[in-house]
């Protein structure tokens, strides 16, 4: 508002220099950006909803995909994401407190609250990276069929998921990595999974306790488990061993699930990351006393808006990826 030069000073609507929305130029532009960014995220989430409704019966169950907590072994669905959500809300709170302190021109308080906000953001981005790494690495491994559907394995007596290493046989066979030096031009083969298709198939055939679990969700919200006969028949369709997830293959089920996961949480993570960078810049400006000299801390309020927006988007991502 201070940088705008106005010549007409009459107190009427068309005279210029007045603020019909009661907000400064910078704040309005921040809101303008946030609304357009909200539409971008909505587009992504709506596209996710589209793909999900299209494959409503075979979509992966989030509780079975995100089950890990750092430093703990075992099956803990949701807890870690809930923790991440809380961290982000908490850093939103320290941000509002910084804005509030800014209104009262309390420099030291603003510095401390900004500092805590940055720490919260860093913890969140770190958690996100860990979540990605776990997702990419995978848990149990699966087979992919000719049609691109995923077959997972469960134990017949306990109903627990089985990892490929639990039953795959070790066969004496040549498994050669296709490398650049012996390929045509610079073409390189995909990295080999821990077990070959033959080893997994042989393992299933020799162990009567292994059953195939398909992607189909039944009425109780669980994935369908095939009988032993169906399992052996279904094995003929398998073409690939899949471990972990990337943009092309995904051991958890529908490939689109992994694509949207990487895309949406990645785009959100990028927002958090740039939010942290912007917060750091403003943090140093506060320390240097830039806003003290300017006489107001509106800049803190503007980055605050961006930071809360990131939190707001996460609330939706959390719901649609992990809860619903």
């Amino acid at each position: 508002m201070d940088s705008t030069v106005t010549t007409g000073t009459e107190e009427n609507v068309w005279g210029g220099g007045n603020q019909p929305l009661g907000a400064s130029y910078g704040k309005l532009m921040m809101w303008f950006f946030l609304v357009s960014d909200a539409l971008t995220f909505s587009g992504f989430l709506a596209a996710y909803g589209f793909s999900r409704f299209k494959f409503i019966e075979t979509w992966p169950i989030a509780d079975e995909v995100f089950t890990h907590v750092p430093f703990f072994h075992g099956n803990y669905p949701m807890y870690y994401v809930a923790f991440m959500t809380f961290i982000l809300i908490m850093s939103s709170v320290t941000m509002v407190l910084a804005v509030d302190a800014g209104h009262k021109l309390q420099k030291t308080k603003v510095i401390w609250y900004m500092f805590l906000t940055i720490i919260g953001g860093a913890i969140f981005v770190g958690s996100q990276a860990w979540e990605w790494a776990t997702f990419i690495k995978g848990d149990f491994g699966a087979l992919e069929t000719k049609g691109g559907r995923v077959l997972q394995f469960v134990s017949a007596d306990s109903g627990e998921r089985l990892a490929l290493r639990d039953f795959a046989e070790t066969l004496q066979e040549e498994r050669v990595d296709h490398e650049k030096k012996n390929g045509i031009w610079y073409y390189q083969g995909d990295a080999l999974p821990s077990y070959s298709l033959n080893e997994v198939v042989a393992g299933v055939k020799s162990d009567p306790n292994v059953l195939i679990r398909t992607e189909l969700v039944n009425e109780d919200g669980h994935k369908t488990v095939l009988t032993r006969d169906e399992t052996l028949k279904k094995l003929n369709d398998a073409t690939l061993v899949v471990e972990g997830a990337n943009l092309v293959r995904n051991e958890y089920g529908s490939r689109l699930f992994a694509d949207f996961f990487f895309f949406i949480t990645g785009f959100h993570g990028f927002h958090v990351f740039s939010g942290v960078i912007i917060n750091v810049i403003i943090f140093f400006n506060v320390i240097l006393g830039t806003y003290e000299r300017r006489g107001h801390y509106e800049m803190v309020e503007k980055v605050g808006l961006y930071w809360h927006f990131v939190d707001l988007v996460w609330v939706f991502v959390f719901t649609f990826f992990y809860l619903v």
Binding site: S92, V93, M95, V96, H308, D311, L312
Partner: peptide, 9 residues
């Protein structure tokens, strides 16, 4: 979302 937008923002 309402409370984040209304009170934090």
């Amino acid at each position: 979302a309402y409370y984040i937008a209304w009170d934090f923002m």
